[in-house]
Write a protein that binds this DNA or RNA. Structure first.
Length: 471
RNA sequence: GGCCCCUUCGUCUAGCGGUUAGGACGUCGGCCUCUCACGCCGAAAACAUGGGUUCAAGUCCCGUAGGGGUCACCA
């Protein structure tokens, strides 16, 4: 068998959605695993809602995730153009073939007539189906018309879904549906199918909200004399309330997660794990995913998007970065927070401290602002630790540091322990006031690391300020 | 409502006739400890339900309930 050709075909009506991203990912993974081809096609036939901005946002999201395409916008390919609005002639020609072959017909009914029929059906509490009004009317291209596909009235179509198994659709549930609108623009079912045929797509993997379209499309493939592709319908991603994931459930755009400080690999990792699994493994590199992914292992049940777990996955990815890589990744987030960080030794020290503490890059910047701006003294911390009793302790630490030429962990440790033991105190009694003095709060990395990242001079200055406050 | 799909801890899932039903996130204890975090140890927590089939059912079949999807000159 020759390598498969797969595609991702988003409508540019908004940003790249988490659900769409997973669909794209599964297609991409299979293409990369099998040495197949991954095509990106833009289904922009909904002119009301499609925007150029959305196209850019989607490509941007795809690129950020690392899902590169072999054919499509900006890269071209032998089956272009890759925007549906530039392929109108192709759909028209295919529709005409169907009309000439008697498999489709022109329908002159107006929207109003159809709507009236629908309302009547509703009033009578029965199912509306196109009554076949124009089925036998002669073709008159000069009259405004839509093109309808002639659906068979009896029998059933069965296909084997790669994730759901055999699915049967009785033909009496189908109707002569519109494939070409009055303005010559194809409807989804037809445009996608004509593109899939002309682009040589051999495996269609899409959201399972499309299962009901599949039998109709197979019928159209057959009418056009084309071999239907294999189908894999991916279960939806749901929100916590088990309805379709939407903005109500929180951020749903891929780029929103980028901006919140998620790593693309982590997002891919998490997305892959909803609906797909490989034994007990949770963390996968992109290479592993490519090597292990199989539609065989995609589950049939819809999955709830779990932000907590994604955060955990992101943390796992974050901590796998070395200091330099983490510093580089976090730098833009410090800048975005208005903090004058540089890609230098100090930032790498901070990265080392952040590794086990911050789960996103934004958290890195958020947790360690005090290294780049004056402390924001927490009132509770001040009341508890910057009290007269702390004065001598702070002063002793201050003097000890002042005497050190260049502080290091071992020296600082000796200093703090000496101060504590000299007074019969636990280490915490000394470390906490210092921590408040240097960071403004009671929670931070090791106090020695904080001193080191802050630097001798800044540490002394903050200690002096705290001594004054302690009185 | 018609049609289609789905149903293992709160969530993601492993399981592919014989398991003390496993892992992960989250939650709750404990340990570690200069605080926080990490880490480690432990706990609570699931086969929707009723019938079959079988020596044996979370695993196969049917029904019921629940959930989701879809019924446009949207995609």
């Amino acid at each position: 068998m020759s390598p498969p050709r797969l595609r991702f075909a988003p409508s540019p009506t908004g940003y790249l959605h988490i659900g769409g991203a997973r669909t794209a990912l599964f297609n991409w993974l299979w293409a990369r695993r099998t040495g197949g081809t991954f095509v990106l096609r833009v289904e922009d036939t909904d002119r009301e809602r499609s925007t150029e901005e959305a196209v850019r946002a989607i490509l941007e999201g795809m690129r950020w995730l690392g899902l590169d395409w072999d054919e499509g916008p900006e890269v071209g390919g032998p089956h272009g153009p890759y925007f549906q609005t530039q392929r109108l002639e192709i759909y028209r020609a295919h529709a005409e073939r169907l009309v000439r072959g008697g498999r489709a017909f022109a329908c002159y009914c107006t929207k109003e007539e159809l709507e009236a029929g629908r309302r009547l059906a509703e009033a009578e509490k029965r199912q509306f189906r196109y009554p076949g009004t124009c089925r036998e009317k002669p073709y008159d291209p000069s009259r405004r018309h839509v093109v309808r596909f002639r659906m068979p009235e009896a029998g059933a179509t069965t296909y084997r879904d790669m994730v759901k198994g055999p699915i049967t659709t009785p033909h009496e549930t189908l109707q002569d549906e519109v494939i070409l609108r009055g303005d010559g623009i194809p409807l989804y079912n037809f445009g996608a199918l004509v593109d899939d045929i002309t682009m040589g797509i051999t495996l269609v993997a899409r959201g399972d909200d499309h299962v009901n379209n599949t039998a109709r499309q197979i019928l159209m493939y057959q009418a056009l004399g084309a071999e239907p592709p294999a189908f894999a319908h991916l279960p939806m991603i749901l929100g916590a309330d088990r309805t379709r994931l939407s903005k109500r459930h929180g951020a749903t755009s891929v780029t929103a997660y980028r901006d919140m400080g998620y790593l693309p690999g982590a997002v891919v990792n998490y997305l892959a794990r909803i609906g797909w699994s490989h034994g007990d493994q949770e963390i996968f590199s992109l290479e592993e995913l490519v090597r292990l992914f199989d539609f065989e292992d995609v589950g049939a049940t819809a999955g709830v998007f779990n932000p907590d777990k994604m955060l955990w996955v992101n943390h796992e990815w974050l901590r796998a970065l070395d200091d330099a890589a983490l510093a580089r990744a976090a730098l833009p987030f410090f800048r975005a927070a208005g903090l004058p960080a540089e890609d230098d030794a100090k930032l790498r020290r901070i990265a080392a401290m952040a590794r086990e503490r911050a789960r996103t890059l934004a958290e890195v910047a958020g947790q360690f602002r005090y290294f780049y701006e004056p402390i924001r003294l927490d009132p509770g911390a001040r009341a508890r630790f910057l009290v007269p009793a702390s004065g001598p302790l702070l002063r002793a630490v201050r003097d000890g540091i002042a005497e050190m030429g260049s502080p290091d962990v071992a020296r600082l440790e000796r200093l703090f322990q000496g101060v504590a033991e000299g007074r019969g105190l636990g280490l915490g009694k000394v470390a906490q006031p210092v921590r408040v003095a240097l960071t403004g709060g009671t929670a931070s990395p090791s106090i020695y690391d904080v001193v080191l990242a802050l630097g001798r001079e800044e540490s002394l200055a903050r200690l002096d300020a705290a001594i004054a406050l302690a009185g």
